[in-house]
Nucleic acid binder design. Structure first.
Lengths: 337, 337
DNA sequence: ACTCTTATTGCACACGTGTGTATGCGGATC
DNA sequence: GATCCGCATACACACGTGTGCAATAAGAGT
């Protein structure tokens, strides 16, 4: 079923059909209607390959995501990113091609080259790592790029992230409103940009609320075990805060474990708040109050950035998505001392 | 950069170039080499749209996955399925188009229709649900379909799943070898096919090992809370087994919680083994011994099925992937009584 | 030396769609 | 009534690649 078939049945040429279906003003309203009706009756759908060949527009976005079996860092975020990306893309009539970034980075084909070959108009990266050998090439890309949770500067590259600063403020506001004044921070490693942003937000909040003297930072590495050990050390030193704000949920769960082992009760003895809203926090005991990112919205924003770029606009290269506070059972109000 | 450009530079016609790059025997070995060399030097890559237009082959697979923000049932499996699918697809020179199955099933376009429009040669579904209104249409599909974790019969539809029967045997073997003879089963709801398969495997194993009298089944609904409550009831009744095999990890974690609350120690008092290898089990206390599915391999198998179908073969419509036992700290050997 | 065969290349068309230009037709203007 | 204008449609070509068939050249056989 092609436009030529429709043309024959309607007694016109294929050009008239083409123009009708594309709503060209060059064709009489009457015949246009007639042809459109005929097309839908026949269940016609255009051959995208022929169309793309002549228009030189692919209407296709690409998404690369990290493929590492042993690293589960993405939790269920991965599918939610993809969810947001796929629906936003589809809503705008764009196809979505999916690629993986494999682990042996040596014989890996250049991403950008691959995109050119596939005629991808814009591309999104999920799970980019700083050891990737193609970073410079991506930064110099001529086709619009958007990277989730990894900052890279370039004329046509955007950056989508959760607003970590605001997330920390949400968490600390919650503790503050529950009467907590002695709040320690279980931070991530210094090599992690996200960890540093969260720690910095903690420092600023404490200072601006007159709690500068209460600032206390335990340095973990985002693993549950590091949270467990740093908390053990803190317990031994004997200075327990009333609340602990962890830079991610896994460390928070490690802290819970260490405290429970020493006979402390959560949240009656110590309140704990995590970050990321991983599933383990939902199923832990007590349920972990935490800050949730909005991965679906992040994915949609990435697509949004690409479309604005494609339209010739100059969207902000950085988009921070609002996180939200998820209240469970690990924070308890205390009277102000 | 087209084959015409190469033709001009090589002093031949575009047909000769086309034949050379496609390794046709109709062209002299000498000129073939020359042209191939020229093409790589110029960094030529064929225009897929033109090629697909004339060959009528898209070299494209499609993947639909369920898009439901509030349902996290896929955990990190989703990305791993996609990982396996994307790499297998790419290794065979196929592109992968991604679509979502949106929640409002009413105004949803027919999946198969969409596949035809996009010229998808084969399609994979992840997260299919039994309330989807397009099931009949999928079953009757003329293009090869493969569904992960959802059985549907049709001439061109395949079914990929973890081998639940073997998984249960792995778990019970592990308990058996650790001396356990009194093993209860915390099963899933009767409406779940997977739950029934797992329960049946439990029954057969117990019977074939002379433990028919020890068969005891608690009926949960796959949630942590149901595991918690069924276990509480069992404790109240006073007949504790030495080991508990749960039909999924969340229920296992619920059981752990109930037992710990009553002062029992895991695994010294009761051994517990879960199923699915969700992340929460890795981070729970104690680490949950469980059965892991191999989602990457499942994804790759789905692609494999489609390719065999496309080659005209008749692959088995059912593929069961071997699960594996993941030993952590929730099972402990006991002396045989 | 002539014919026949075979190897190699060119020619021409096709795939389905979009678009610039030409053509035809009706009506309005003078 | 001749001219001009505008509207609607047809014609023709293009996009880049693949392929059946014809054409040419070279070599082999008699």
């Amino acid at each position: 079923m092609t436009i030529k078939d429709i043309a024959r049945l309607a007694g016109v040429t294929h050009s008239t059909v083409s123009r009708s279906l594309n709503d060209s003003p060059l064709v009489a309203a009457e015949t246009k209607e007639k042809i459109k009706k005929l097309a839908t009756e026949l269940g016609y759908s255009p051959n995208t390959f022929a169309r793309r060949l002549v228009t030189k527009k692919s209407n296709t976005l690409g998404v690369f995501f990290l493929s590492r079996a042993e690293i589960n860092f993405m939790e269920n975020f991965g599918t939610q990113f993809l969810d947001g990306i796929a629906t936003a893309s589809s809503n705008n009539g764009y196809d979505l091609l999916m690629f993986t970034m494999t682990r042996d980075l040596s014989n890996q084909k250049s991403y950008i080259r691959l995109c050119q070959e596939k005629h991808v108009e814009g591309v999104i990266f999920i799970g980019m790592t700083s050891d990737d050998p193609h970073l410079a090439e991506i930064a110099a890309s001529q086709i619009p790029v958007c990277i989730i949770d990894f900052e890279l500067k370039g004329d046509h590259v955007g950056f989508i992230s959760s607003d970590n600063d605001q997330g920390i403020r949400l968490a600390l506001d919650h503790l503050w409103q529950n009467g907590h004044r002695s709040i320690a921070h279980l931070g991530g490693p210094e090599v992690s940009p996200v960890a540093m942003i969260r720690e910095d937000a903690y420092r600023r909040y404490m200072t601006s609320h007159g709690l500068e003297s209460k600032i206390k930072i335990l340095r973990g590495d985002f693993t549950k075990d590091s949270g467990y050990r740093r908390t053990q050390e803190m317990i031994r030193q004997g200075h327990l805060p009333t609340a602990l704000l962890a830079a991610n949920d896994y460390m928070a769960l490690g802290a819970v474990k260490a405290l429970k082992e020493q006979g402390y009760k959560i949240p009656s003895d110590v309140s704990i708040i995590g970050y990321d809203n991983v599933l383990a926090g939902e199923y832990s005991d007590p349920g972990l109050t935490t800050i949730g990112q909005n991965p679906i919205e992040m994915g949609a924003s990435a697509v949004q950035y690409l479309f604005e770029k494609l339209k010739g606009g100059a969207p902000s290269p950085i988009h921070l998505i609002n996180p939200n506070l998820i209240i469970r059972d690990s924070v308890r109000p205390i009277p102000i001392r």
